[in-house]
Protein backbone atom coordinates (compact mmCIF):
# COMPACT_ATOMS: atom_id res chain seq x y z
CA UNK A 1 0.00 0.00 0.00
CA UNK A 2 2.76 2.37 0.99
CA UNK A 3 4.60 2.21 -2.29
CA UNK A 4 1.37 3.01 -4.09
CA UNK A 5 0.99 6.11 -1.97
CA UNK A 6 4.60 7.02 -2.66
CA UNK A 7 4.10 6.48 -6.36
CA UNK A 8 1.03 8.68 -6.34
CA UNK A 9 2.74 11.37 -4.34
CA UNK A 10 5.81 11.43 -6.56
CA UNK A 11 3.66 11.49 -9.70
CA UNK A 12 1.70 14.42 -8.33
CA UNK A 13 4.95 16.11 -7.39
CA UNK A 14 6.37 15.63 -10.89
CA UNK A 15 3.15 16.86 -12.48
CA UNK A 16 3.02 19.98 -10.36
CA UNK A 17 6.68 20.59 -11.19
CA UNK A 18 5.88 20.28 -14.88
CA UNK A 19 2.90 22.57 -14.39
CA UNK A 20 5.02 25.17 -12.65
CA UNK A 21 7.69 24.90 -15.33
CA UNK A 22 5.05 25.39 -18.02
CA UNK A 23 3.65 28.42 -16.24
CA UNK A 24 7.13 29.84 -16.05
CA UNK A 25 7.71 29.14 -19.75
CA UNK A 26 4.43 30.82 -20.54
CA UNK A 27 5.49 33.84 -18.50
CA UNK A 28 8.73 33.91 -20.45
CA UNK A 29 7.01 33.62 -23.81
CA UNK A 30 4.37 36.21 -23.11
CA UNK A 31 6.94 38.71 -22.02
CA UNK A 32 8.72 38.75 -25.35
CA UNK A 33 7.08 41.47 -27.38
CA UNK A 34 8.28 44.35 -25.27
CA UNK A 35 10.53 46.97 -26.71
CA UNK A 36 11.87 47.75 -23.26
CA UNK A 37 13.20 44.22 -22.94
CA UNK A 38 15.36 44.27 -26.06
CA UNK A 39 18.44 45.80 -24.38
CA UNK A 40 18.06 43.14 -21.68
CA UNK A 41 17.98 40.43 -24.32
CA UNK A 42 21.10 41.85 -25.98
CA UNK A 43 22.81 41.90 -22.61
CA UNK A 44 21.92 38.24 -22.12
CA UNK A 45 22.93 37.24 -25.65
CA UNK A 46 26.30 38.59 -24.65
CA UNK A 47 26.33 36.41 -21.54
CA UNK A 48 25.01 33.16 -22.97
CA UNK A 49 26.04 33.54 -26.61
CA UNK A 50 29.21 35.56 -26.94
CA UNK A 51 30.77 34.04 -23.87
CA UNK A 52 30.11 30.54 -25.19
CA UNK A 53 31.67 31.44 -28.53
CA UNK A 54 35.25 30.48 -27.72
CA UNK A 55 34.42 26.98 -26.52
CA UNK A 56 32.21 26.48 -29.58
CA UNK A 57 34.89 27.66 -32.00
CA UNK A 58 37.61 25.53 -30.45
CA UNK A 59 35.56 22.37 -30.12
CA UNK A 60 34.06 22.80 -33.58
CA UNK A 61 37.48 23.14 -35.12
CA UNK A 62 38.88 20.11 -33.33
CA UNK A 63 35.87 17.90 -33.95
CA UNK A 64 36.07 18.74 -37.65
CA UNK A 65 39.76 17.96 -37.67
CA UNK A 66 39.35 14.67 -35.83
CA UNK A 67 36.53 13.60 -38.12
CA UNK A 68 38.64 14.31 -41.18
CA UNK A 69 41.52 12.32 -39.73
CA UNK A 70 39.37 9.35 -38.75
CA UNK A 71 37.29 9.46 -41.90
CA UNK A 72 40.33 9.67 -44.12
CA UNK A 73 41.97 6.56 -42.69
CA UNK A 74 38.78 4.57 -43.29
CA UNK A 75 37.81 6.06 -46.65
CA UNK A 76 41.27 5.88 -48.15
CA UNK A 77 41.30 2.10 -47.86
CA UNK A 78 38.32 2.05 -50.24
CA UNK A 79 39.83 4.69 -52.43
CA UNK A 80 36.88 6.88 -51.59
CA UNK A 81 38.67 9.73 -49.82
CA UNK A 82 36.84 12.13 -52.12
CA UNK A 83 33.76 11.46 -49.99
CA UNK A 84 35.51 13.01 -46.99
CA UNK A 85 33.83 16.36 -47.62
CA UNK A 86 30.24 15.13 -47.55
CA UNK A 87 31.00 12.85 -44.62
CA UNK A 88 32.35 15.69 -42.50
CA UNK A 89 29.67 18.14 -43.63
CA UNK A 90 26.70 15.84 -43.19
CA UNK A 91 27.81 14.55 -39.80
CA UNK A 92 28.31 18.10 -38.57
CA UNK A 93 25.20 19.63 -40.05
CA UNK A 94 22.80 16.85 -39.17
CA UNK A 95 24.11 15.57 -35.86
CA UNK A 96 27.24 16.86 -34.24
CA UNK A 97 26.58 20.55 -34.80
CA UNK A 98 23.25 20.69 -33.00
CA UNK A 99 23.99 17.96 -30.45
CA UNK A 100 27.51 18.91 -29.37
CA UNK A 101 26.57 22.59 -29.34
CA UNK A 102 23.57 21.68 -27.19
CA UNK A 103 25.68 19.68 -24.76
CA UNK A 104 28.36 22.35 -24.54
CA UNK A 105 25.71 25.02 -24.20
CA UNK A 106 24.07 23.09 -21.36
CA UNK A 107 27.40 22.82 -19.60
CA UNK A 108 28.63 26.33 -20.28
CA UNK A 109 25.53 28.53 -20.30
CA UNK A 110 22.79 26.34 -18.81
CA UNK A 111 24.61 25.65 -15.58
CA UNK A 112 25.59 29.31 -15.28
CA UNK A 113 21.97 30.37 -15.75
CA UNK A 114 20.77 27.95 -13.09
CA UNK A 115 23.39 29.07 -10.62
CA UNK A 116 22.74 32.73 -11.33
CA UNK A 117 18.97 32.48 -10.91
CA UNK A 118 19.35 30.20 -7.90
CA UNK A 119 21.68 32.67 -6.22
CA UNK A 120 19.38 35.56 -7.04
CA UNK A 121 16.67 33.60 -5.31
CA UNK A 122 18.86 32.75 -2.34
CA UNK A 123 19.92 36.36 -1.87
CA UNK A 124 16.27 37.44 -2.08
CA UNK A 125 16.87 39.44 -5.25
CA UNK A 126 13.91 37.80 -6.95
CA UNK A 127 11.70 38.48 -3.96
CA UNK A 128 12.84 42.06 -3.80
CA UNK A 129 12.05 42.50 -7.49
CA UNK A 130 8.57 41.27 -6.84
CA UNK A 131 8.20 43.68 -3.96
CA UNK A 132 9.38 46.47 -6.24
CA UNK A 133 6.42 45.57 -8.43
CA UNK A 134 8.72 44.17 -11.12
CA UNK A 135 7.79 40.73 -12.35
CA UNK A 136 10.91 38.55 -12.16
CA UNK A 137 9.52 36.38 -14.95
CA UNK A 138 9.55 39.37 -17.28
CA UNK A 139 12.67 41.05 -15.98
CA UNK A 140 14.93 38.09 -15.28
CA UNK A 141 13.58 34.92 -16.84
CA UNK A 142 12.23 36.11 -20.19
CA UNK A 143 15.35 37.90 -21.48
CA UNK A 144 17.51 34.92 -20.59
CA UNK A 145 15.07 32.55 -22.21
CA UNK A 146 14.96 34.42 -25.49
CA UNK A 147 18.65 35.12 -25.50
CA UNK A 148 19.33 31.39 -25.19
CA UNK A 149 16.85 30.44 -27.87
CA UNK A 150 18.32 33.01 -30.25
CA UNK A 151 21.95 32.25 -29.46
CA UNK A 152 22.07 28.50 -29.69
CA UNK A 153 21.09 27.98 -33.33
CA UNK A 154 23.64 30.65 -34.20
CA UNK A 155 26.27 28.82 -32.18
CA UNK A 156 25.36 25.55 -33.89
CA UNK A 157 25.75 27.13 -37.33
CA UNK A 158 29.12 28.56 -36.36
CA UNK A 159 30.13 25.17 -34.94
CA UNK A 160 29.28 23.37 -38.18
CA UNK A 161 30.98 25.94 -40.36
CA UNK A 162 34.15 25.91 -38.29
CA UNK A 163 34.08 22.11 -38.21
CA UNK A 164 33.89 21.91 -41.99
CA UNK A 165 36.82 24.30 -42.22
CA UNK A 166 38.69 22.16 -39.69
CA UNK A 167 37.97 19.11 -41.82
CA UNK A 168 39.35 20.97 -44.82
CA UNK A 169 42.44 21.88 -42.85
CA UNK A 170 43.26 18.28 -42.02
CA UNK A 171 41.79 16.50 -45.03
CA UNK A 172 42.95 18.83 -47.78
CA UNK A 173 45.85 20.85 -46.44
CA UNK A 174 47.47 18.08 -44.48
CA UNK A 175 46.39 14.70 -45.89
CA UNK A 176 46.19 15.85 -49.46
CA UNK A 177 42.60 15.17 -50.46
CA UNK A 178 41.82 17.22 -53.53
CA UNK A 179 40.32 20.54 -52.50
CA UNK A 180 38.00 20.58 -55.50
CA UNK A 181 36.52 17.20 -54.74
CA UNK A 182 36.23 18.07 -51.02
CA UNK A 183 33.93 20.94 -51.85
CA UNK A 184 32.23 19.73 -55.02
CA UNK A 185 31.11 16.34 -53.72
CA UNK A 186 29.99 18.11 -50.55
CA UNK A 187 27.98 20.53 -52.62
CA UNK A 188 26.47 17.71 -54.61
CA UNK A 189 25.44 15.84 -51.47
CA UNK A 190 24.44 18.47 -48.94
CA UNK A 191 20.93 19.78 -49.35
CA UNK A 192 20.00 23.14 -47.90
CA UNK A 193 16.49 22.27 -46.68
CA UNK A 194 17.10 18.72 -45.69
CA UNK A 195 20.45 19.09 -43.99
CA UNK A 196 21.15 22.68 -43.00
CA UNK A 197 17.63 23.77 -42.12
CA UNK A 198 16.86 20.55 -40.29
CA UNK A 199 20.02 20.99 -38.26
CA UNK A 200 18.97 24.50 -37.33
CA UNK A 201 15.52 23.26 -36.34
CA UNK A 202 17.15 20.66 -34.15
CA UNK A 203 19.35 23.16 -32.39
CA UNK A 204 16.36 25.44 -31.91
CA UNK A 205 14.46 22.63 -30.18
CA UNK A 206 17.50 21.78 -28.05
CA UNK A 207 17.86 25.44 -27.12
CA UNK A 208 14.26 25.58 -25.91
CA UNK A 209 14.82 22.53 -23.75
CA UNK A 210 18.19 23.55 -22.31
CA UNK A 211 17.13 27.07 -21.45
CA UNK A 212 13.81 25.94 -20.09
CA UNK A 213 15.39 23.32 -17.85
CA UNK A 214 18.15 25.69 -16.73
CA UNK A 215 15.83 28.54 -15.85
CA UNK A 216 13.24 26.38 -14.16
CA UNK A 217 15.87 24.54 -12.13
CA UNK A 218 17.29 27.85 -10.98
CA UNK A 219 13.91 29.36 -10.30
CA UNK A 220 12.74 26.38 -8.26
CA UNK A 221 16.07 25.68 -6.57
CA UNK A 222 16.11 25.34 -2.83
CA UNK A 223 17.85 28.58 -1.87
CA UNK A 224 20.79 27.07 -0.05
CA UNK A 225 24.29 26.37 -1.29
CA UNK A 226 23.46 22.67 -1.38
CA UNK A 227 20.20 23.27 -3.22
CA UNK A 228 21.86 25.41 -5.87
CA UNK A 229 24.66 22.96 -6.48
CA UNK A 230 22.08 20.20 -6.84
CA UNK A 231 20.01 22.30 -9.22
CA UNK A 232 23.07 23.08 -11.35
CA UNK A 233 23.98 19.42 -11.62
CA UNK A 234 20.41 18.52 -12.50
CA UNK A 235 20.37 21.15 -15.22
CA UNK A 236 23.37 19.64 -16.94
CA UNK A 237 22.19 16.05 -16.51
CA UNK A 238 18.56 16.64 -17.47
CA UNK A 239 19.23 18.84 -20.44
CA UNK A 240 21.97 16.55 -21.76
CA UNK A 241 19.69 13.53 -21.53
CA UNK A 242 16.85 15.49 -23.07
CA UNK A 243 19.07 16.57 -25.97
CA UNK A 244 20.17 13.01 -26.71
CA UNK A 245 16.66 11.62 -26.41
CA UNK A 246 15.09 14.37 -28.49
CA UNK A 247 17.85 14.03 -31.05
CA UNK A 248 16.76 10.48 -31.73
CA UNK A 249 13.12 11.49 -32.06
CA UNK A 250 13.92 14.42 -34.33
CA UNK A 251 16.31 12.37 -36.45
CA UNK A 252 13.66 9.69 -36.87
CA UNK A 253 11.13 12.33 -37.91
CA UNK A 254 13.49 14.18 -40.25
CA UNK A 255 15.62 11.48 -41.80
CA UNK A 256 14.05 8.20 -40.72
CA UNK A 257 11.36 7.84 -43.34
CA UNK A 258 12.25 7.72 -47.04
Amino acid sequence: MNWLINLGASTLGKLSGLGNASLMLWGGLVAFPRLKNIPLIIQQIYVVGVQSLLIILVSGLFIGMVMALQGYTILVSYGAEGSLGPMVALTLLRELGPVVTGLLFAGRAGSALTAEIGLMKATEQLSSLEMMAVDPLRRIIAPRFWAGVISMPMLALIFSAVGILGGHLVGVDWLGVDSGSYWSIMQATVDWDKDVVNGVIKSFVFALVVVWVALYKGYSAIPTSEGISKATTETVVFSSLAILGLDFVLTALMFGIN
Binding site: G49, V50, L53, I158, S160, M186, V190
Partner: peptide, 23 residues
Protein backbone atom coordinates in the same frame (compact mmCIF):
# COMPACT_ATOMS: atom_id res chain seq x y z
CA UNK B 1 30.50 41.88 -29.09
CA UNK B 2 26.93 40.83 -29.76
CA UNK B 3 27.23 42.49 -33.16
CA UNK B 4 30.36 40.49 -33.91
CA UNK B 5 28.62 37.34 -32.75
CA UNK B 6 25.66 37.92 -35.06
CA UNK B 7 27.98 38.76 -37.95
CA UNK B 8 29.88 35.55 -37.35
CA UNK B 9 26.66 33.55 -37.35
CA UNK B 10 25.61 35.22 -40.60
CA UNK B 11 28.99 34.44 -42.13
CA UNK B 12 28.61 30.82 -41.07
CA UNK B 13 25.14 30.65 -42.59
CA UNK B 14 26.39 32.23 -45.79
CA UNK B 15 29.26 29.79 -45.98
CA UNK B 16 26.98 26.83 -45.40
CA UNK B 17 24.57 28.13 -48.01
CA UNK B 18 27.05 28.93 -50.77
CA UNK B 19 30.11 26.82 -50.18
CA UNK B 20 28.60 23.72 -48.57
CA UNK B 21 25.05 23.32 -49.79
CA UNK B 22 25.66 25.28 -52.97
CA UNK B 23 22.23 26.76 -52.66
Amino acid sequence: MVGIFVALALAATLMLALQVANK
